[in-house]
Every structure is written in structure tokens, then in C-alpha cells.
Design a protein around this nucleic acid. Sequence first.
DNA 1: TCACATAAGTTATAATATATAACTTATGTT
DNA 2: AACATAAGTTATATATTATAACTTATGTGA
Lengths: 228, 228
Amino acid sequence: MTRRAKFRQITIDEIKSLARLQMAEGGTASLSLNAIAKHMGMSGPALYRYFESRDALITALIVEAYEALANALEETAARFADQPVRDCLRQVLLTYRRWALDHPIDFQLIFGNPIPGYQAEEKITAPTAGKVFAPILKILQRAYQQENRPYPSFLENLPPQLQVHLSHSMREFQPSLPEKVVYIGIVGWYHIHGMIMLELFNHIQPLISDPATFYSNEIERLMDQMNL
Amino acid sequence: MTRRAKFRQITIDEIKSLARLQMAEGGTASLSLNAIAKHMGMSGPALYRYFESRDALITALIVEAYEALANALEETAARFADQPVRDCLRQVLLTYRRWALDHPIDFQLIFGNPIPGYQAEEKITAPTAGKVFAPILKILQRAYQQENRPYPSFLENLPPQLQVHLSHSMREFQPSLPEKVVYIGIVGWYHIHGMIMLELFNHIQPLISDPATFYSNEIERLMDQMNL
DNA sequence: TCACATAAGTTATAATATATAACTTATGTT
DNA sequence: AACATAAGTTATATATTATAACTTATGTGA
């Protein structure tokens, strides 16, 4: 890498870092290229050498957020891979919540409403999205395929028109994954996700005194349902 | 109501209506007072006679959204009040999804990320928030208190530090509501909510071919868990 | 009916935002 | 050393929210 390219990378990183900081203070849409430039000691238009537009910067941040979350989950899964399935999955799901609370802005970028005016470039963001779900699927695969645990009873009478399909990018990670495993994963993920979204946007606090305990408790209940 | 006040109300309604229309096209944050005024054939600053600021307009829209959702749920609950609990609850939960899909902007205003720069005026929005949850609690109360259905088994060994408390405004609607009923309601609501948020933001479609069937199926599973 | 307060609009202006164009300076390579 | 290009600059166009000052329309009380 040339010296110039190195400096360029540093500048790009600083821009993204400041953008994150700005959003942390005023929400995902309080992003001002001008303010970033000013803070870095240069004029506004200079930023356009590094990002084509405000949306391009946002897209970069979204991709990074996806990757960071996926990495956090994968890392936890790897660290507890030799533990029983239930313990491993518990840790991964705890990491999921922990990461969301620690990185509310990144989580909103991934799962919240679209930013004003911002048109998601799905070609860029979609492939990374699958990575988030992959570690959870991997654990479930271990449970139901390697360890041959019985499938939960609620899978028995599913309506036939309910087709589950993995996106192309996800298929690459998990080549031979039974529909049932995917379905269990989806059901679990949605439950988890609902709790976290509500907690993140302060809809849980008026009802539950201790969201952490509630979450832990629901995880256990969920894993009970999954026969884990 | 004087003639002038009537015209004023019409103008206010038109502003709100156009605001909704604008958001429907470009997301919750693509709200331009100027554009609204222009569309109504008047200058930008004229709008400030009707709304103190952009945030005041947003707050009004949020309150209306809460009320509209609560009304939709209540209406459904009333229409199926003489049916068995399970049938009534099913219809209410279907209405919940239907309303969210039919009014994605209003749903985002209530449950999505905060709009850039917008500071929620919780004094105004909080009291109405309770109304959304009320119809569901009412149905559960009927099941477990009037009809004396047994509580689901997952309530048996809850950790003692897990306190459930209703906000003040909600207490007024439901004076004597056992903690257990509230807890069941919360658990169910979160599950439902997770599915709808993910569907609304297009995170469900890459995985599930038929979200409606999936949702229906999950409702049944949920009510099974609730002993309904 | 007329006088007058106020409601409801106007234009002008300030402060910021994204973004483009045209120009200058620094950097690295041939 | 010459030169292409990267990386910055200022100037400008066009939005945005919002305030100030001013004008016109409306409704009411004397």
C-alpha cells in the first residue's frame, strides 16, 4: 500500500468514526458532512473526495454495522463451541442483546427505519445481512443434525404453503440446511428481535423493571420450546 | 365553533394529511414544511401559524397514529367480544398486523427510530401509548379472571426480581390487573411485535415466502402457549 | 355601521444542509 | 525535472427550518 493510500484510508476511517459519533448524539439522521469536515479541519466539499455522497457514507456505515454484529456473534459462538448447545446458544443470544444496547446506532442502521432520503443499496447491504443469521443457524444445525435432538412439536402441523427459503448469499454459508432448522431459527430470531427493538426504543421500560432478567428468562423459555 | 375556528381546523387537517402523504413517499424524515405550504398554495412561514415547529407537527402525527392503532384494535375487540377468547384475540392480533402494513408510516412513527432531530415529547405521547396495549390486556383479563383459565406453565418459576409494573396511565384503564396477566401480555406482544417490525422493514421476505401464513401460524402457537 | 383587535397571510432574512464547479496546491511517478 | 493526479480550496446553487417585520382579511363590540 502506497503512502498516499494509507493516509487516504486513515482519513476515511476518521470520517466514519466522526459520523458514528455524530449519530450517537443526535440519531441516525443527524448526520452532517459539513460538521464532520469542520471537525477535521477542512472544508465541506473536501469530503466528497472520499465519499460520493451522504448516502454513500451511510451505506458504508451500514455494511460495517452488519459485519461488526456478525463478528460479535461469531466470536461468541466460537468461544463457546465446545460447550453444550444450550449454553453456547445462550451466550450468542446474550451477545446479540449486549451488542444492540452497546451499539444502538449501528443496530438502528441495520434494523430501524430507513434514514430520510436514503435509498438502501441492497446489492451492497444484502449479502452481509445473511452473515448475522449464520452463527445461530450453525448452532441449531449442530443440535438437530449432529446431535440428533428431536424437533420441537410445533413443527408437526405446519401449513404446507409455508415455504422457508434461504437467500442465495446465505445458502453459500450453509449448503445443506433442512427447512425445519431454518424455521426454528427464524421463529427464535423474531422473538429475540422483538424484545430488543422494544427495549432499544424505550417501549419496554414502562412495563418491565429489569429488562436484562426478562430477556434471560425469555431465552430460557425459547430454548425450552426448541428442545435444547 | 366559530366559522374562523372551523376553517382553521380544516387547514390543520390538510397540513397533517399532506405531511402523512409526504412521509409515505420518502420516509418519516422526508418532511418539508416548505413543500407542504407550497402544495397548499401559501408561503412557508404561514404554516407556523398552525404548528409551532416541525417537531410540533410530528408530535401531533404521532399522537394521532397511537390513537388510530388503538381504535382499530378496540373496534376489532368490540366486534368479536361475544366470541370465544381465542377467536377474539386472534382477530385483534390480525388487525394489529393489518394496520401496521396498511399504515407503515404511522407504525414507524410509533415504534421506529426517532426522527432526526426530533425530541419526543413524552408528556404528550406516553398517555396515549398505553391505549394500544389496553385492548389486549382486556381480553387476557377475561380469559384468566372471568373464565378462570389456568395460567400457562412458564409462569411458574419466574425469577422473583422480575417485577412487572403498569405505567400510571395504563393503571387507570385496568385498575386491578394481576401481574401474571400483564406478563403474559407483554411476552405475547413482544413476539408479535418482532415479526411485524421485521416484515415492515423487509427482513422477513428473504426467508419466508408467505409472511401472512407465517404470522397466522405463530399466533396460534402463541395462543397455545397461553392456554387459550 | 364603524373602529379596532387579532387572525392569517405576506416578503425579507438568517443560519445550515447537500452538492457541484472551477481553481490551486501538494504528492508521487516517470 | 516534468507532469499527471490526488486532495484540498473558495464560490455558488438550491434546499431546509425558523424568525422578524409588515400587510391584509376577518369578526366583534361600542
